[in-house]
Design a protein around this nucleic acid. Structure first.
Lengths: 208, 208, 208, 208
DNA sequence: CATGAATGAGTGTTCATTCAT
DNA sequence: GATGAATGAACACTCATTCAT
């Protein structure tokens, strides 16, 4: 257990770098960030970064992974519980909204990753990663919808694929607009919007 | 009229540069595009670009403007016509979806601008520009909804701000997901989704 | 003929770089030479070098080619003339010695290339190039010796391969030693040595 | 005797480093060798190397010394024995050739040192060292020749300086060529060449 | 007006060396 | 004594921009 350097120490330093990198990437963007900036922020020599990450883009991706882990929304168990599809949908979505809100200071950083999917060296990796994240959520929602349809809670002529994609998309899009217009309150909008949507989905629209 | 160069010629050349730049930015991304690439594609000397645009970012912004003009969805007249809110919404949305679909080859380019709002030198200009675009659309939808509510076509407890933001957001988000997952058909999903949504919005849900 | 830049100008500039590079490489060695040094010596911006050569090692190899051309010993016609093998050998060797002496200021540079065959990125290219040069010379000498043997001018039990390699080797080795010990006069030593050697080769040793 | 570390241990470790360094320098060349590589090969920590050698170049020079010691050709006693100059020359040369052949795996390494005389930080030290080695050999051969001339075994009009330099040079040059052209057999060529040369040197050329 | 040529500021990365334990 | 960790100096190369023609 007594290694040359405690794993603890190493992990701590790694975390320190990750956090500094997150901050600087967030402020300056990937392209405009210099390794030096990160090193300074992390209060260490530039080359030390290379002891922990092989390159700038490696570090960038590591920050992505770090963020992903930090804000992972666990969507397990939603499909199979006893609640109604409406309730489950609402909870699921609220969970996701909460996580988006929670990211708060990291939203700029997420934009950065998002932006990097358009060009950058890591565009393919990132695109895949994003695709996976979306895929996961879409599948959970999909299942909830399908079950709701079977149970007769939701309309029978829905296209579950389209709806799940739309729900995810709507939330994303709302937060995106809030990103462009800071005075918007994406949480409030999301909630209201979702309520309305669920009514559109429900078999018996008089039900809340 | 007998200038050193006809305005005509100058405009033509400008257009030529713009198109070449659009193409190259789209293929390589802003960051990875070299002025040289654009010059070659436009079949002219590198320095000539600087006769028409002061800098790379200036050119980038010019391409943005060019694209914006090209795909401007005219939303005029929707609010005041005699159709129902549902119809107007549907048309509006279909118009926008059509324009998104129409962009087709330029979608990658749009991503590029989108990405540039996150960092880049022109981030502020672009952010503002996007905000304006969204704002414009939101306002039209907003108006349609408000009128629909007044007329009793739509539910009376809607938050028009939230709904309009949500509608725009949903469409954006759907196309975004399709960008990550090419086998998706964003048009079909949008249409289905919108139908469902409008039902949620309608005062009398049995109406289509 | 009136191109964007006269080929003349371009060649002149190229030559200028080559000469500056030759000088700096010669003084500092490949490894210790910075592109900047060369640019300064050539009185131009660093990046201009890259307009003419793709990389440091490319430039290095170009200097090698330049030097090779400059000091190419033409060994043509030696085998087939009417002179005796002894005379031809003597002339050939004197020609080579003369060229070695002529290199004079470039000897250090040649060492540099020689050294680069041991490691460096271009080691393989250079090794091949040197091998070719040696091969060429060896073959001329070989032919002269074979003809001399046929004619009975040289001993009949010679191994022409061995002798030609030895002759070339001896000259090289002598200059090498002079490189280590500047007070040596490699020309004098070569001449004397060769005289002795030719006597050893001759069928009738009493002949000069 | 009970030091903090037995001299024995220390020497052993030093040797271990030296051997590892020799190997790595030989494979990658001075410039491309990293201290890390050597440390790993020697199965110890990087910094430990600095306990035994002050710097990379110091280590390089130490390897040179190590190699020099290992392959030192003892030329003592050749001048003063009862054998003929021809025999002594032949033996001397064969001894040297044997040592060159013996070096075998180390030939690449020798090239490396040789190359380092051209530039590198240690160029002056190395140049001096090589000069000394050559000087030593030349002197032995010189003496043998002078005695041979006095005894009338060798021609009387020889320039002993030139001949000794030439002999050494020839051998070096032959091995050099074999280095460039691996299919050559330098031993065979050396022997043949030397035989011929000695005949040229001999007062009575009919003697073998 | 058009442009080829020239440029220098800017940066990721390597690696010998030092230092704290 | 031994070593893993930390470091900063060093450097090739790129590319937006300018300039001379």
């Amino acid at each position: 257990m007594q290694e040359t350097q405690t794993e603890n120490t190493r992990d701590k330093k790694r975390e320190q770098i990750l956090e500094s990198a997150a901050l600087v990437f967030s402020q300056k963007g990937y392209r405009l960030t210099r390794m030096n900036d990160i090193a300074q922020k992390a209060d260490m020599g530039k080359s030390t970064l290379y002891e922990y990450f092989t390159s700038k883009s490696d570090l960038f991706m590591a920050v992505f992974g770090w963020l992903k882990t930090r804000y992972q929304v666990t969507a397990d168990g939603f499909a199979l519980n006893g609640k109604s599809a409406q309730e489950n949908l609402s909870n699921l979505i609220q969970g996701w909204v909460a996580s988006l809100v929670d990211m708060d200071v990291h939203y700029q950083l997420i934009m950065e990753f998002w932006a990097a999917t358009a060009s950058s060296e890591v565009k393919d990796q990132l695109k895949q990663a994003f695709a996976d994240i979306y895929q996961t959520y879409r599948e959970v929602i999909l299942k909830v919808i399908e079950i709701g349809m079977k149970r007769g809670e939701l309309k029978e002529d829905l296209d579950p694929e389209a709806v799940s994609a739309g729900v995810i998309g709507a939330l994303d899009g709302i937060f995106l607009q809030a990103w462009f217009k800071p005075e918007m309150d994406p949480t409030k909008i999301s909630n209201h919007y979702i309520t309305t949507l669920i009514q559109g989905l429900s078999a018996d629209p008089h039900r809340s």
